[in-house]
């Protein structure tokens, strides 16, 4: 794997890779948790960290460490659903827009730009208020994916536009390759790295928005995520009561997660194209 070797030269990639591996292991540990994450009172309340309870316990009577393993896992699942589904939308919109051009292109890009411009956070708040009773990991992930494609569709579109200028496109068209075959065979290989690096960014954005919605109590509070964990801690006044282990765990974990995801995407996109770092503004 020469690519990996080259990437590992960049300390940012190496560091973020290690952090993500640790977080993934943490998420994996949730399968071995001795506690049911939805069950309250499984352990004594409000204990500070000890050999028995590594990160202490919270006011709901849950073990913070094991709760955190579920939180990381669920946050990653939400962001993966959001990221992957929105990748599909972004790729379709971007490729159709770039390949077809003309009116199709203008309409699609207008829709995308509108999503970029409208205060998405507020629309998300409205939507989550209404579907709160159906809210679970999948619904939230899909909701996020529905709004998270616009910027990346634009990136993919401009990639396609530049590919269209190249000779092989003309050759392929002249030799009678169909549109779909054309897109899948000729363009996909070029778009893959871009899709991957935008996926990472999009996951980071989804986790951030999930946390924000969770703080506002707009998600299913019984499913542990980094956001709901923080919400419980705040609503039980963990700050004033100095229960740093409870409030600190989701905060520190999420900070590591955000930085690691970002560094990885920056490192990869710099490797792909040293001139432009593809970045998006997180909400």
């Amino acid at each position: 794997m020469k690519v990996f070797k080259d990437l590992f030269r960049d300390y940012r990639f190496a560091l973020s890779f290690c952090v993500l591996v640790v977080l993934l292991i943490l998420a994996g540990l949730s399968f071995f948790s001795p506690y049911d994450p939805t069950l309250w009172g499984a352990v004594p309340r409000d204990l500070s960290p000890s050999a028995k309870y590594w990160l202490g316990t919270d006011s709901n009577g849950q073990d913070v460490f094991w709760q955190a393993t579920f939180a990381v896992r669920n946050s990653l699942i939400i962001s993966l659903i959001a990221g992957l589904v929105s990748r599909v939308i972004a790729v379709i919109v971007g490729m159709v827009s770039g390949y077809k051009g003309g009116a199709t292109d203008r309409v699609l890009m207008f829709l995308g730009d509108s999503l970029l411009v409208i205060p998405l956070f507020l629309i998300m708040v409205m939507l989550s208020m209404l579907v709160r009773q159906y809210m679970n990991l999948l619904v939230l992930g899909l909701l996020l994916s529905f709004f998270g494609w616009a910027w990346d569709a634009r990136l993919i579109r401009s990639l396609i536009l530049s590919l269209r200028e190249r000779d092989f496109t003309q050759t392929a068209i002249l030799s009678g390759t169909g549109t779909l075959r054309m897109v899948l065979n000729e363009y996909m290989p070029f778009a893959m790295p871009l899709i991957f690096s935008t996926l990472i960014n999009n996951m980071s954005w989804a986790i951030g928005l999930e946390m924000t919605l969770a703080i506002l109590g707009l998600v299913n509070m019984s499913i542990p995520t980094l956001g709901t964990m923080l919400n419980w801690a705040i609503s039980y006044q963990a700050i004033l009561l100095m229960r740093w282990w409870w409030i600190g765990t989701p905060v520190v974990l999420s900070i590591f997660l955000f930085i690691a995801l970002y560094w990885m995407s920056v490192s990869i996109s710099e490797y792909l194209d040293p001139r432009t770092r593809i970045q998006r503004v997180g909400a």
Partner: peptide, 22 residues
Amino acid sequence: AMIVRPLPYYIFSFGMLLLLAY
């Protein structure tokens, strides 16, 4: 900037609040 940039508004503000106000 590489450290601050990826943090969502909520987490960053919350961190500032914890650190500088509490």
